[in-house]
Design a protein around this nucleic acid. Structure first.
Length: 348
DNA sequence: AAGCCGGGGGA
DNA sequence: TCCCCAGGCTT
């Protein structure tokens, strides 16, 4: 039996019941695919349900504000996905008459939609024969065909993409694409793959050559950097001073507290004595509330300390574009997990 | 080509 | 700790 038949047979017997599999609505598929990028199914599922409930059509999605989208996205990470979706939903309304595109060539032009997502939407919605290559497929193909080119290299992406197109079932692209990904996720897992029960074992290069642990090959990632965040808690009349983050850094357009960052750990006394802090806060009394709290991102280690400020002079707030927000309204702002967790305790 | 962008879970 | 997850964008 050929590769694709074997994989599809396995899929029909072993597939999970996922809520986005029983539709051919390109909007709903787009919603699920963007949410699932670099995200485990169990983590993304509640977000998918929440988004579909709040925005049943692309028109509903486009009518929301970016702040509302980001609030629903809170805690899922990679927030550019939410921002790009909002942009794309509006573009679909304005330039596609509210009909979500279904062809690969149109999909690939949308912001936030790359080769994987375009292939997924096109094949699942209208059965276009484009092979998906996600982390699961890279791993499965690497092991089965014994390809040791790094999967995160330019050459690797090209090679695996061409291989995926060659071996796909062009008669039933949607089922096949679902099947290869599910096979990678459940059978040909990253660690301890279930080789003993694997129907592909007879033809698998990695199994026959004892290379399962060596494949796939991946270029090593860059080391994480340490950053030291000092968050200033300034409140007045049940209102909290907040800052909306800007471009060119983590957590774009999310809300946090007034922040001072250093490249290495400093004491609160040193912090308050620094010219930068003095020019934005003046003479203040400060008391540490909690920290340092370590918050790990995929590429940075944040060390956050929260400091309560008293005797803060109003005139400093406008200069930094900080705003006072009612305690009750702060809960409605999209915040990084780090800030949300802190405020959850601080505001009770 | 390499770096950047979250958060969580498993080993 | 390190690696991975239904990747894509920017430089």
């Amino acid at each position: 039996m050929i590769f694709s038949e074997e994989v599809i047979n396995w899929y029909l017997k072993n597939k999970r019941d996922l809520p986005w599999r029983d539709t051919n609505d390109a909007y709903i598929i787009w919603l699920s695919e963007i949410i699932m990028q670099q995200t485990r199914v169990e983590q993304g599922m509640p977000y998918f349900n929440r988004f579909l409930e709040n925005y049943p059509t692309v028109s509903h999605f486009a009518s929301a504000t970016e702040d509302e989208i980001l609030k629903l996205w809170q805690g899922l990470g990679y927030y550019s996905r939410g921002r790009n979706m909002h942009y794309t939903a509006n573009l679909v309304m304005d330039e596609h008459g509210g009909y979500f595109p279904t062809s690969y060539d149109k999909l690939i032009k949308l912001k936030g939609v790359g080769e994987y997502t375009a292939a997924a939407i096109a094949s699942f919605s209208v059965g276009e024969a484009k092979a998906v290559v996600d982390g699961n497929v890279f791993r499965l193909l690497s092991r089965y065909f014994g390809v040791d080119i790094p999967i995160n290299s330019t050459k690797g992406k090209k090679t695996f993409g061409e291989l995926a197109d060659e071996i796909m079932d062009r008669e039933q692209p949607g089922i096949y694409n679902q099947a290869v990904m599910e096979f990678g996720a459940l059978q040909c897992k990253p660690f301890n793959p279930d080789c003993p029960t694997c129907p592909l074992r007879p033809g698998c290069y990695a199994f026959r050559n004892r290379k399962v642990k060596e494949l796939p090959v991946k270029l090593k990632q860059v080391a994480s950097k340490d950053r030291y965040f000092y968050y200033f808690v300034v409140s007045k009349n049940n209102r909290l001073l907040v800052n909306k983050r800007g471009a060119n850094d983590i957590w774009q357009n999310l809300y946090e507290l007034p922040l001072f960052e250093t490249s290495q750990a400093v004491s609160i006394e040193e912090l308050l004595a620094s010219p930068e802090v003095r020019s934005n806060f003046g003479d203040v009394l400060a008391k540490k509330i909690t920290g340092p709290i370590k918050h790990v991102l995929s590429h940075q280690n944040l060390h956050a300390t929260f400091i309560e400020i008293q005797d803060f002079e109003e005139r400093f707030a406008s200069k930094m574009n900080w705003q006072y927000v009612d305690y009750e309204e702060v809960r409605n702002l999209a915040q990084p997990k780090l800030i949300f967790s802190f405020l959850n305790k601080f505001l009770n």
